[in-house]
Amino acid sequence: MRGAAHATPTVNAAWLRGARCITITPFREQQAACAAWLAQNFDLAWPKAGRIVVKGDLAAAWNGPGDIMLIDAKGNVSIDQILSALAGKAAIVDQSSGRIVIRLAGEKARRTLMKLVDIDIDPTVFKPGMGGITALHHMSVGVFKIADEPIFWLHAARTYASDVWHSLAEAGEEFSIDMQVLDKG
């Protein structure tokens, strides 16, 4: 825990170590088939641009035009299962080692995030299920709102993880941010 401005932390950041991140980019005219497979196997709808679809620890997040990222906070999803199911239909790329997933939650989570990203995260417009790829201190991050409490999920490049983590610590220190690493979500 950093900071001492508040007696108790009013924001907490958890690095969900072991989360799986797999991008699925359907080839031409294959999105419907991929979406059907996603719905059937994970009960997740194909996310529209700027959206995330969440079921428990599993989420399908928009990752760019024609590209989604399947995020499993618990790290249970098997890439082999996806590769065999969607072979020839989509480019399946494992990014589990390449991205870090951070859950940011608590009363001051929004105030903390306001210091880091330029997108509009006001609760009246940034509803659960919304998000996007944006810049955080010159680094590219995915920022998604999972719940109204609020809970946000961020994903960032592993090689920049140290600076993302540092930026979060700095932004949240006036709120006594609690920072921890959670293995397997």
């Binding site: 991008t23 980019t25 080839f27 031409r28 024609g66 590209d67 989509a90 480019a91 790329v93 494992d94 990014q95 589990s96 080692s97 390449g98 991205r99 490049a157 592993r158 090689t159």
Partner: peptide, 13 residues
């Protein structure tokens, strides 16, 4: 062109 491209620079040591 029908193909997909992604950076995997961070994924692999």
């Amino acid at each position: 062109y029908d193909f997909a491209m992604s950076s995997v620079s961070d994924q692999w040591a």
